[in-house]
Design a protein around this nucleic acid. Structure first.
Lengths: 191, 191
DNA sequence: CCGCTCATGTAACTGGTTACATGATTTA
DNA sequence: TAAATCATGTAACCAGTTACATGAGCGG
């Protein structure tokens, strides 16, 4: 069987957790998550669920949600096995590499800016990330309240990462300031 | 003008740093980077450079590399302006959200495994990430030696993030162990 | 009854991947 | 002389996005 994408696997996981649930609810889970790089667009989720159904990893049955008829999803035994396989070592290599960070990507090229602009970039990135902290904290609290222990731990990971990025940005800014001071005093000495 | 993708912007950045260089060299930069989620495949980079040329952000001239004729790339003034704009606050929202982490994604669904397998997953992830540390450290050292200060700082960010993920995984595992002990002793008490 | 959310899709596009093809030059 | 690396592409494919379309039920 062809390897499933991480989106398909995540859908499998969500269906497993929230079954019975609608495709719409799965899509919304992606759309409302603060982390996910998937937008959970209908154009991705509906076809993916179709594929999972055809592979007999997910089954649909008729049901009602909020009084309206709809189709309710649940994993099959085969689907659960697939989900477990995804979580069983060894992790495929792609999973364990360094993560992608658009802020970091940009910093590689900061030398293209004037020093004041370099500092402005770091400050802006910092304040944008700081603004995310309460969102993530609330998400952790939400999972804690819901009693979903693993999601709570996972979300704590997101928070940890965010804090680490912030610490790095601050260190970066401090190093930049020091660097600028040094180059200024060098010029002073030359006078 | 249509918004450029992050890959196109990163290409712009690389060309700016390494000009004059060949398209092949740009592609290899992506391919050899330990971080990048872009594979830097020819099928992506060559067409992207074509687009950047047509937009007059990059210009090509004939040259030689290692004795062979090739086309050498460099940014135009317009290209540099575009690069600087990419680095100028405010960062577009997408850049400042929580990053995607395939290990973290999986941990949301760890409850689908038996406790021993949960622990095995965390241990495997941990050891795979640990194996990346020396690679990243070497990369930082490489940039330090090359005198590319900003890339060095950026790569330190990758290292920081990796260390944070590791700390989180260890915390996770400790919490899991504690949790298991508690549930065991609860059973003991019931006896 | 108007707008909102629930619910289910589809069509066109896009930005990447894989895999292939070609040929020159260098190194073992 | 064979294999590796430099260099430049192309064609087929694929997964996910945007934008649209539709309709039912619910709250003001």
């Amino acid at each position: 069987m062809k390897r499933l994408s991480d989106l398909e696997m995540a859908i499998l996981g969500i269906v497993w957790k929230r079954a019975p649930c609608t495709t719409y609810a799965v899509a919304r889970e992606f759309a409302t998550s603060p982390s996910s790089h998937w937008r959970g667009s209908a154009g991705a989720v509906y076809p993916a669920i179709d594929r999972l159904c055809r592979l007999r990893l997910v089954k649909q049955r008729k049901g009602v949600s909020l009084g309206r008829p709809c189709s309710l999803l649940a994993l099959t035994a085969k689907g659960l096995a697939q989900l477990q396989k995804w979580l069983t070592p060894p992790l495929d290599g792609a999973a364990a590499t360094i993560t992608h960070d658009p802020v970091r990507t940009r910093t590689f090229f900061l030398a293209a800016l004037a020093p004041e602009q370099q500092r402005a970039f770091l400050e802006d990135a910092e304040s944008q990330l700081v603004a995310q902290l309460p969102v993530l904290e609330e998400e952790v609290a939400r999972y804690r309240r819901s009693g979903d222990w693993f999601s709570e731990q996972a979300q704590k990971g997101a928070l940890h990462t965010m804090i680490a990025r912030l610490a790095w940005l601050r260190e970066f800014r401090a190093a930049l300031d020091q660097r600028l001071n040094e180059s200024v005093s060098k010029k002073e000495r030359r006078k």
